[in-house]
Nucleic acid binder design. Structure first.
Lengths: 399, 399
DNA sequence: GTATTTTGTTTAGCGTCGGCACAAAGTCAG
DNA sequence: CTGACTTTGTGCCGACGCTAAACAAAATAC
């Protein structure tokens, strides 16, 4: 009776990522018959997740009956996405397709303990849900720290002056229950928590510069330190305990600065915004503005030789680290975020040349290196994590 | 009518890896009903791949009807496995379960060009097939070089004095056709080719020290250089073009020896058998005996302070490299082969301590590091690669 | 010896999907 | 404008592959 139950998840993911604009291509992508694809689309529409245009698309030039366009339901359910960073937090409602429906930024003038700030960001999200009246199907939280699995604890939330091992997922889930954020069936939605760079990589893979990549490597800075993430065949690879891609301690300058990890010349201290500012002869400001300060300097004063030299120095070190990662992971695309995105924009060729030169197989076809393209990609990534159960089994969540 | 088609592959893999000793646990592992599991087992038995014991197992102590044991068919079909290394080649027939049915070693006194030696090893394998009269379902070849995908070319067969880019998979497939190695339907079997360490990792994961690991990292030496491999959720991760886990150029000694990659202090030149022999004050012999020479020295003269010191030096460097990999890959187990296996055996605690100390989260639960346990694991791994199509879809190959 | 537990088999039933025919809605050729 | 063609969407049927449930078999437990 209900046709196409197994294909329901894959079909939703295709529409979600914009790879199934019509039922015809959905049929081809799923490898099923038109009958099944039609039933799948009807089912997803009945669930309120996608929309099938009543009018066929305007003439495409090709002959044959025109297809009806598929798209995510514009006022379908959403997920609650939250991000905490050094200078504040941000809550948002995100629909399918990575569509940001509503956002609420928040400041944090004094460092707060994990429970307080997580409560605050959830309260902001719950407010958005009340204002918009949207159904909520899940919730995701991005934090600037490695998050251990399956415990859901933040292992190194250094930039938030939190205690190591803060149980962020539990706190998030409890805050959601307290705030009355209910999912299908009236039960509180479970909270997902993850590292911000990991989640940003997921977002870039689904909706940004990483679309279509099979093995996507992302490297990005916040204010301090360098983070990495890897998406393999569409799934985030976070290692056996969530701690993979801690790339900050690759050695990129053997005679460099000592690092808190015990070694010296780590990527973390040699290629982050603070390192760039120092190299350019500038005095780094407070931690919570390093990224902004570095980015502005790079954008406005690139003609200044000291800035240019510093940019090239940092780019060379980053290139060395990326080359090491290419030798180990062999990705087919690299996306850079934070300061590294700006370094790439300032001089794309230099960085690419260093990576090609220092990676073993660089000569025989180098890896494309692209800047991140999404605004708030960690936030969208938190939403992706929250959507994942729905994408895996729509009926299991909504049935 | 034909019951259990989707579960056929998973079921075969369970029996193949020894995780389904009876139909009862097969039922549980597959998550199907007893009826389906019984039909699946019957189908696999009819295909000649597994055997269902006629007599029930001896009393197990637990009550209830005793189960009939499942095992791989002792005289079922085989695959042709081949390995080429610096001092010769080896051909074998390998059945399901990693059972070596017949082997034929071969020497190579003078360096030969790829086509000649591949022809020779295939001829040896074809001879074994004629002698034993076994059905052949596939063929796999292990070479000491990165193998590019999808081209199937050997990119750095340095130890074989082959030209870089030798099309080993094509040569292998052609040799199989020439030698008349036929599969089901009388068509020549296709040849698979892969890096020896990669294939060894696959073998250790299925039948050796890596059994049950979710994310398995293998690191091993041959005579020169260091190789790595990663098995993720049971599948070999060889990157987007087959070049992943080229771990030989991690920096482990910033002030160390220059490497042909342009850097200095790479794992390749700092932690291979030649480096160990030099550190111990011994004169390295010819390339094709370095591993043997180093292993013997380590086994017989570990009381000699110079040997012990050298072993500890190399182990420390290896530990540094492994720690870097742990930070990036976060595996839940590490298996070491070649000289590294012996270093681990000589002093297990030292290596584990270095890795725990230098990896970021070592304190909160360090990664188990184990020695490889299979003889000829690259050869068995080549067989695993050849079996893969059968494990994925038995009917597609045999139906 | 009977009850209980666990395993294996048979049968019936049903859900899900492919195949096919048909309808719908456009372009193309004359 | 009309008819042929192409492509998309839908309804119906049948087959395949599974579950469920009852039954049978073979051991242990009391």
């Amino acid at each position: 009776m209900e046709r196409g139950r197994a294909a329901l998840g894959p079909a939703l993911e295709l529409v979600h990522t914009g790879r199934a604009p019509t039922r015809a291509v959905l049929t081809a992508e799923l490898g099923v018959t038109r009958a099944t694809a039609g039933a799948v689309a009807a089912e997803l529409e009945a669930l309120g997740l996608i929309r099938v245009d009543a009018r066929p698309t305007a003439s495409t030039g090709s002959q044959g009956r025109p297809s009806h366009r598929l798209s995510v339901a514009p006022d379908g359910p959403v997920v609650l996405a939250a991000q905490i960073h050094a200078d504040g937090f941000r809550a948002a409602l995100v629909g399918l397709g990575g569509r940001m429906v509503a956002t609420a930024p928040g400041c944090m003038t004094v460092p707060a303990d994990p429970a307080r700030i997580i409560d605050a960001v959830v309260a902001a999200g719950a407010g958005l849900l009340r204002e918009t009246g949207r159904r909520c199907l899940g919730a995701g939280l991005a934090v600037p720290s490695a998050v251990a699995e399956p415990e859901g604890t933040a292992l190194n939330p250094l930039h938030l002056s939190w205690p190591a091992g803060a149980p962020v997922r539990t706190l998030f889930t409890e805050a959601l229950a307290k705030a009355g954020v209910l999912g299908p069936g009236g039960v509180p939605v479970p909270g997902m928590a993850g590292n911000d760079v990991n989640l940003a990589a997921l977002a870039e893979h689904r909706h940004g510069a990483g679309r279509g990549a099979r093995h996507l490597l992302c490297v990005a800075t916040g204010h301090r330190g360098v983070g990495g993430a890897l998406v393999l065949d569409g799934r985030l690879h976070s290692g056996s305990s969530g701690l993979a891609l801690e790339v900050g301690h690759l050695t990129v300058n053997p005679a460099g600065l000592p690092c808190h990890c015990g070694s010296r010349g780590c990527l973390d201290v040699e290629a982050d915004p603070a390192a760039f500012l120092t190299a350019a002869g500038r005095t780094p400001g407070p931690d919570s503005s390093l990224l902004h300060q570095a980015t502005e300097l790079l954008r406005t004063a690139y003609d200044d030789p000291s800035v240019r030299d510093a940019a090239e120095l940092i780019a060379d070190r980053l290139g060395l680290g990326l080359a090491g990662l290419v030798n180990i992971l062999n990705p087919d695309r690299i996306v850079l975020g934070g300061l590294h995105r700006e370094l790439l924009a300032a001089d794309p060729d230099r960085l690419r040349a260093v990576v090609a030169d220092r990676s073993l197989w660089g000569r025989s076809g180098s890896v494309p290196i692209l800047p991140a393209t999404l605004d708030h990609n960690s936030l969208v990534g938190a939403a992706e994590a929250a959507w994942q159960p729905v994408l895996d089994d729509p009926l299991g969540v909504l049935g």
